[in-house]
Write a protein that binds this DNA or RNA. Structure first.
Lengths: 124, 124
DNA sequence: TCTATATTGATAATGAGTTATCATTCTTGT
DNA sequence: ACAAGAATGATAACTCATTATCAATATAGA
């Protein structure tokens, strides 16, 4: 990530402004508003560079391809809208859950995903 | 799923005896102890039939290919050993977590995954 | 036992997501 | 403004899990 290009700026801005994890496709779609000709290859290349750099982290959800969000956010979880497919951030957390594991297991971290409808999607 | 074959029996037995969700590869490996020549295609075919039939359910974990476990178990979660990669069942649950979502979101269900080391894997 | 045909195993094919290739374009230091 | 070479875009190639194909085999009813 040496030179500063319109493409990279658009991709970085997209991630910075997003309040939820975005898929490469969502990043492409949004960043194209700034750089119309942007290609998906550049999105992947830039995402990977940002992840290696440590400024972006991967968000994996069950049965889904990877999404990306800015690094450095406080511990949080996600809400997956089963209607529109978007993933939102949940800044709340029930706290330590290592007690869920039987003796002998050493739990180091947890992930929680809520499923349902987001405010933009009418109840199914 | 009309005829009864050694292959299907072995696959069904494998899933019935497992106390944790198994990947197609794990099912193949275990069922081959009963039916040495068993092929991966038969494992997939049988798994799919069992899922359609409703006797087996899919277990999706973040960033992982699907695993399978017998249907009808009570609500539970999973523990993913970051060392050996095996997934275990956690029969405990913190209960309703819909309060994690901001107003406007309608949470219908949740998934929880704990990560760490299982009893068989020395602490990293 | 015999036959119809469901099932199997090997493997080619597929699909979705991601990465590599390469000629062209753009950025940056001079 | 110029040159070196980094970055881009189009797309071919790749990866991995899963599915389709098809000749050979095994099951179950007659």
């Amino acid at each position: 990530m040496e030179r500063s290009t319109r493409q990279r700026q658009a991709i970085r801005d997209t991630l910075r402004e997003a309040d939820r994890p975005l898929s490469p496709g969502e990043i492409l779609e949004h960043a194209r508003q700034q750089v119309p000709g942007l290609g998906i290859a550049t999105v992947y290349r830039t995402i990977n560079a940002l992840v290696e750099e440590g400024s972006v982290v991967v968000v994996d959800l069950p049965g889904e391809a990877a999404r990306y969000e800015m690094a450095g956010k406080q511990h949080h979880h996600h809400f997956h809208c089963t209607s529109c497919g978007k993933v939102f951030e949940l800044m709340a957390c029930p706290g330590d859950l290592s007690w869920l594991a039987p003796p002998g297991f050493r739990a180091e971290r947890h992930e929680i995903v809520l499923y349902g409808n987001c405010p933009d999607c009418p109840a199914s």
